[in-house]
Every structure is written in C-alpha cells, then in structure tokens.
C-alpha cells in the first residue's frame, strides 16, 4: 500500500535491506514453528487414526466415533461463548471508548486488561465455587417455563455445572482480551471522522455506527478470532467446570453435556499410556484442523469486506 509506482526505482539502502530481510525472516519463523508443530502432531497422530478399541483402550469402536462428539462439544461450547462474548465485549469497548467519562474510562480499561491475566485455573475455581451454584435457580426456572424449547429441555442440573455454564465462564475469560483489542481499535478512530459526523447533527449512536464501527470492523473480527481461538483451546477451566460425558446433545441445562477436545485431553492425558496417548494427540490434531477451518471462514468474511477496513 505504500510502494511508489514501479518505474521510479528507489535507492537501495543497507538499513532497508537489513530491516526488510529480518522482517521476512521473522515471518518465516512463524511458518517454521507452525510446520514443526503440525509435523509433530501428524507424526504422533497417524498410529491413532487407524487404531481399534483393542489396541487403545480409550476407544469404544474407532477413532472417528471417539472424536466426533468431542468436535461437536468444542465447536458448540465455543459458539455459545462467542454469542455472549462478542456483543458484550463490543458493548464494553464502546462504553469505555465513547460513553464513559474519560477519567473513569482509563481506570475501567486498566481493570479489564488486568483480568486478562487471571489464570484459567482461577476461572475454573470461581466457576465451580461461585458461578455454578448461583445459576442453579435460573436454570431451574428456564427449564420449568421454557422447557418446551429444545435447548432448555431435559432435567435441569442440580449443580449448575452444564455446558451453558462452561460457555459463560469461557465468555468471561475471553472478554478481557476481546474488549482490550476492540477498545484499542475504537480509540484509533480518526477524531476528524467523529467530529464530522457530530457536526452533521448525528446522535452519538449514529456517530458510532457511521464512523467508529466501520473503522473498527476488521479489529472486531480480529478480536473475535483471538477470542474464538482461546475458547476452542481452553483446557483447565472447562475441565474443572463442566460435568462432562461424551455425547452429542443440544440441551443446555442438563448434567449430561458434550465435552471439548482440550478439556478431554486434560482429563485423560495424565492416566493415558501406550496408544491412548497417540489417540489424545490425534484429537489435538483435529482441534488444530477445526481451528484452521473456523479461521479460514473468518478470514474469508473479512476479505470480502476489505474495502471498508479502516483508515487507508
């Protein structure tokens, strides 16, 4: 976006050369690292892909029937988490960047940044000890009055440790990082754009909708992708909060819940031996591929809208 038209040849400088080469080198390092991880995963996973339940005790029949419910659970939990987290994080970011008094906003922004650092173990502890008991009556109510909606059907859990709880804990976990990025992007909106909108008589919301949101769209998608990545791969908190079984169900409030790949690895890995270890690593590979697919879709969406993305 910044190079001059081709005919005019800039003078080659040593500094430029060194700088651009090291930038390319750094980019390539990522390729190398990722390739190394992928090779490691594939090599470790291959024996498991064709294993039977006789070779690996963890399998019921074969690998694919084992991983199926896990993939469902992973995507399902992450999707619910994003449904909560995206609008709320945009809301918080807007509140901090454009609604709250500036002095308050700085403090709030700082608190949100800090919460990104709370270790997932702590979210797990909080989920079991504080959050899950608190939502039990809400679930019972939803189940009783809205039970005819399939999502809320079944028998409501007595402990509150359901997939909905796990997804909400995930949402709380990914909120800080998403909010921080959204806020940072919203704050970068050119002041001139905002003032122009206000000067034309726009209300604050119209200004936000016309100047801030279009400007921040790619940032919002970036934040969502980061949040989704964390939600898909989150291990400890889900393992601790969720009452997990390997099933496929859309019911949100029962104690029988699908579990996620990462949580399942955390639960099963310590006692795994022999080929079971390969099976678990193979599920890691599947998670890798799922993330790959989800990201491809997200990127495709952003690229379609490229012409609107930002200041340039």
């Amino acid at each position: 976006m910044t190079t001059a038209p081709a005919p005019i040849k800039a003078k080659a400088r040593l500094g430029d050369l060194v700088f651009s080469r090291s930038a390319v080198f750094a980019g390539s390092m990522i390729l190398v690292a990722l390739a190394a991880v992928a090779i490691f995963l594939i090599v470790q996973a291959i024996p498991a892909l064709f294993a039977t339940n006789e070779e690996a005790s963890i399998l019921e029949t074969n690998f694919w029937s084992y991983v199926g419910p896990l993939v469902f659970g992973t995507v399902w939990a992450a999707a619910i988490a994003l449904v909560f987290a995206v609008p709320i994080s945009i809301g918080i970011a807007l509140f901090i960047s454009h609604y709250a008094p500036r002095r308050l906003a700085a403090v709030l922004g700082y608190i949100v940044d800090l919460l990104a650092a709370v270790p997932s173990v702590v979210f797990g502890l909080w989920g079991i000890g504080v959050f899950a008991p608190a939502v039990v009556p809400v679930y019972a109510w939803l189940n009783e009055y809205l039970g005819w909606i399939p999502l809320f059907g079944g028998t409501a859990s007595a402990t509150g440790r359901t997939i909905l709880t796990a997804a909400m804990v995930l949402a709380v976990m990914i909120l800080p990082i998403m909010t921080a990025i959204c806020r940072e992007v919203f704050l970068q909106t050119p002041v001139l754009h905002e003032e122009a909108a206000l000067a034309l008589g726009a209300t604050r919301w119209e200004m936000v909708r016309m100047a801030v949101l279009p400007f921040g769209r790619s940032g919002i998608v970036s934040a969502s992708v980061l949040g989704l990545g964390r939600a898909l791969g989150e291990t400890m908190a889900v393992a601790m909060v969720l009452s997990a079984s390997q099933v496929v169900t859309f019911e949100l409030l029962t104690s029988v819940n699908p579990t996620t790949i990462a949580a399942n690895i955390a639960l099963s890995f310590p006692e795994a031996y022999g080929l079971n270890v390969n099976v678990l690593i193979a599920t890691g590979l599947i998670l890798f591929i799922v993330t790959f697919a989800v990201n491809a879709v997200a990127r495709w969406i952003v690229d379609r809208r490229k012409e609107f993305s930002g200041a340039n």
Binding site: L34, L41, V225, L228, G284, T291, A296, R299
Partner: peptide, 21 residues
C-alpha cells in the same frame, strides 16, 4: 496472505499441545 492465515491458525493451538510439542 499465508502468514496472516497461519497466525490465525496458531492462535488456535491448544495450550496443552504446545506443551507436548
């Protein structure tokens, strides 16, 4: 384009897999 995409993929590496690697 490849790097952008792979970076996105990298955000999805489960932490436990990174440890195993």
């Amino acid at each position: 384009r490849g790097i952008t995409f792979l970076v996105d993929v990298m955000t999805g590496i489960p932490s436990i897999v990174a440890g195993l690697f």
